[in-house]
Amino acid sequence: MSGNGNAAATAEENSPKMRVIRVGTRKSQLARIQTDSVVATLKASYPGLQFEIIAMSTTGDKILDTALSKIGEKSLFTKELEHALEKNEVDLVVHSLKDLPTVLPPGFTIGAICKRENPHDAVVFHPKFVGKTLETLPEKSVVGTSSLRRAAQLQRKFPHLEFRSIRGNLNTRLRKLDEQQEFSAIILATAGLQRMGWHNRVGQILHPEECMYAVGQGALGVEVRAKDQDILDLVGVLHDPETLLRCIAERAFLRHLEGGCSVPVAVHTAMKDGQLYLTGGVWSLDGSDSIQETMQATIHVPAQHEDGPEDDPQLVGITARNIPRGPQLAAQNLGISLANLLLSKGAKNILDVARQLNDAH
């Protein structure tokens, strides 16, 4: 009898209710805020589980004197976190989706994509230029951005401005803007500013005609071990179906173009009346040469937790077992079709030249 009692006690200790789920994140304040929001949602869904947040620095956090596009290494903000995932030191990792490459290392998958916040870019102005827009900034004003995508589009749109690289986390960039006289304004992701509670610093939100956004911008991705079915089931509740389908289309477009950090590629997606609209573009580094096109596809946005595919093969690095396969494939095909259209119009040449120029500098 006593033996059975011990077995029952052991089973209770090993039951999922007692389990601590370890969540990996970057150390920056924004990353911690984003991770806290994901953990809060998981806690609400699984009140019996405990969650421990483990923060670590990544290569991208450490190399702050070089433009991201020049470092010449993929997975700048993800490699150390993936290493911890691989060694079973954490069970899942919360990322900004735009930091996750469209091809993940073997053994990993994006197990959830959370509801997207505003994906557009924002302009934050130096205190002396508050009330201005990019259009009304004085001639030769210097605007800071760490992104080739932003610089290429904005140089084309605002030729009277000069664009220079600015690195560091959000706090560091804002301090550089406010305390030094080098920059009249800087460009940042609206979602990051909003998550930090800095709505009052948003001086201008850039519309798609001015600057399309990065693939996955404004959404959070939760990376897990691809074979860890328990954790895949656990994080599945975080999937937002519309965000998922938009981001599958965007990531398929980028992957098929073979774009990345070192080339200016941008997108804009919208879901309306059962249609998914995808606009994508590529630019030369100075913005003088560009190709942009829009395509659409009829896609039914499923309700969360309709029964999805059981075999769960990944699409552009994403596993969404609780979302039907048909809409996911339709979104992926839309991204591939748009990429093929741009490639047929000469996108590869623009991107190759951009890559060579970026590598040469």
Rank of each mutant, 00 (worst) to 15 (best):
L30W: 01
L85W: 01
D311E: 14
I291G: 07
N340T: 10
R325P: 14
A112K: 01
L341C: 07
I53E: 07
E80D: 14
H305R: 05
R32I: 14
C247T: 06
G111S: 07
Q304E: 13
K227H: 05
Q314S: 05
L81S: 03
R195Y: 10
T78D: 06
Q292W: 06
L170E: 07
E82K: 06
K87W: 12
T133K: 09
D121P: 03
D228Y: 01
D312I: 01
G346H: 05
V124S: 06
G221R: 01
E293R: 07
G48W: 10
V142F: 07
F163M: 11
H256N: 05
E52V: 12
C247Y: 10
L85M: 11
R19C: 04
T136H: 12
R22N: 10
R325D: 12
D91C: 05
C247L: 05
E86V: 09
T58L: 05
M295S: 04
V94I: 07
W283I: 05
A214Y: 01
G48V: 11
Q50K: 14
R167S: 08
E209Q: 15
V23D: 01
I323M: 05
H95E: 03
E52Y: 10
L174W: 06
L234N: 14
V265L: 05
W198G: 08
V123G: 07
H239N: 07
I33L: 11
Q153D: 01
S288T: 09
Q50F: 08
I110N: 04
P138Y: 07
L68N: 06
L64Y: 14
L329T: 15
A270H: 11
E310N: 01
H95V: 09
F125A: 05
T133R: 13
T78W: 04
L49F: 05
L177C: 07
G48C: 11
L30R: 01
L188V: 01
A67E: 01
T25M: 07
E250S: 01
E52H: 05
I21S: 01
A151D: 12
K62E: 08
Q296E: 11
Q304D: 01
G131L: 08
L193A: 01
T279H: 05
Y213E: 14
S28W: 01
D61G: 03
N340L: 08
K140W: 14
V124K: 05
L92R: 01
Q155R: 11
V265M: 04
L285P: 14
H305S: 06
M295H: 03
S45E: 10
P101C: 01
A303D: 15
P309L: 13
S57P: 06
H199I: 12
G24Y: 01
S69P: 12
V235E: 06
D178F: 06
D289Y: 11
Q304V: 01
N88R: 11
T269P: 01
P138N: 11
T279C: 01
V130L: 07
K140S: 13
G168P: 01
G335Q: 05
Q332M: 15
R149K: 03
D230L: 01
K115V: 09
L234Q: 08
E179H: 09
L68T: 06
I166Y: 07
V202C: 12
S69M: 14
A249D: 04
A331S: 04
I71D: 07
R175W: 11
N322P: 09
L177I: 07
V90R: 01
L64D: 08
H256V: 09
I291W: 08
Q292V: 07
A339D: 06
P324S: 08
Q153G: 08
V94K: 03
L154V: 10
H256D: 03
L234M: 07
P105L: 08
D121R: 01
E242S: 04
R355Y: 08
M295N: 01
K62T: 01
T269I: 01
R149Y: 07
T319C: 12
E223Q: 03
N88H: 10
R32N: 13
R164V: 10
L188Q: 06
I299A: 11
K128H: 11
D311W: 08
P208S: 10
I53A: 06
K128A: 11
A152F: 04
A331C: 13
I113H: 01
F77M: 01
M196F: 14
G131D: 10
L342I: 06
K157T: 07
A339S: 07
S147H: 01
N322Q: 10
L193C: 01
P208M: 12
W283G: 13
D359L: 06
L148A: 01
T78R: 01
K115Y: 06
F108K: 01
P101Y: 01
G218P: 01
Q328M: 15
V123F: 04
E117Y: 11
I71A: 01
A226C: 12
S337M: 05
L92D: 01
V94N: 04
G144R: 07
H199R: 11
Y213R: 01
A297W: 11
S96L: 01
V353D: 15
Q314V: 11
K140Y: 09
C114N: 10
P47D: 09
L174C: 12
E293G: 14
F183I: 14
L76F: 07
V94R: 01
L76N: 12
R32M: 12
N171G: 11
K348C: 01
T109A: 06
I318M: 08
V20T: 12
D228I: 01
A266C: 01
L254R: 03
C261W: 08
E182A: 13
D233M: 07
Q217E: 04
E73A: 09
T319N: 05
L342F: 15
L154D: 05
G131V: 12
S57W: 10
P105F: 14
L174Q: 06
F253R: 01
L351N: 01
D178A: 07
S45I: 15
G111E: 03
H207D: 05
Y46I: 08
F163Q: 10
A252E: 08
H160G: 11
I166P: 01
V235C: 01
V202R: 09
P313I: 15
K345Q: 05
R195K: 03
R175P: 04
R167Y: 09
I248V: 07
V124I: 11
L341S: 05
E117A: 07
T243R: 05
S262T: 01
V202E: 10
L97E: 04
A320D: 09
I318W: 01
D352C: 01
K157N: 13
M295F: 07
L104H: 10
T136R: 11
D307A: 01
S75Y: 01
S262H: 03
Q180C: 15
T172P: 04
D286P: 08
Q50W: 01
S37G: 08
Q275M: 15
Q292M: 13
K62P: 01
R201A: 01
V39K: 07
A112L: 07
K272C: 06
A347H: 05
G221H: 06
I63Y: 06
R150H: 05
I166M: 13
D286G: 07
E258T: 01
K27Y: 08
G287D: 06
L64Q: 08
I186F: 07
S288P: 12
W198D: 08
E80Y: 01
T298M: 09
L174V: 10
R150M: 06
I71S: 09
S284T: 15
L232A: 08
Q292D: 10
A55L: 10
R246A: 14
V123I: 13
Q180G: 10
L245Q: 09
I110K: 04
S96N: 01
P105K: 11
E310Y: 01
Q180D: 08
M196R: 06
K348F: 11
K62V: 13
D65E: 15
R22Q: 10
V38K: 01
S146W: 10
E139N: 13
I21K: 01
D233K: 10
L42M: 08
A152N: 07
A219N: 01
I63W: 08
S69C: 13
E179I: 15
R201N: 07
N88T: 13
Q328G: 09
L81E: 03
P101K: 01
E139I: 14
T78E: 01
P119A: 12
E182V: 15
W198H: 11
R255N: 04
D233C: 11
L285T: 10
I71W: 07
R225E: 08
T66D: 05
T109R: 01
S288A: 13
L100S: 06
S147R: 04
D65T: 09
I323A: 03
R32W: 09
S96D: 03
F77R: 01
I113S: 03
G221N: 01
D65H: 10
E80H: 07
A40D: 11
H268C: 07
L174D: 01
R32T: 07
L341P: 04
C247H: 01
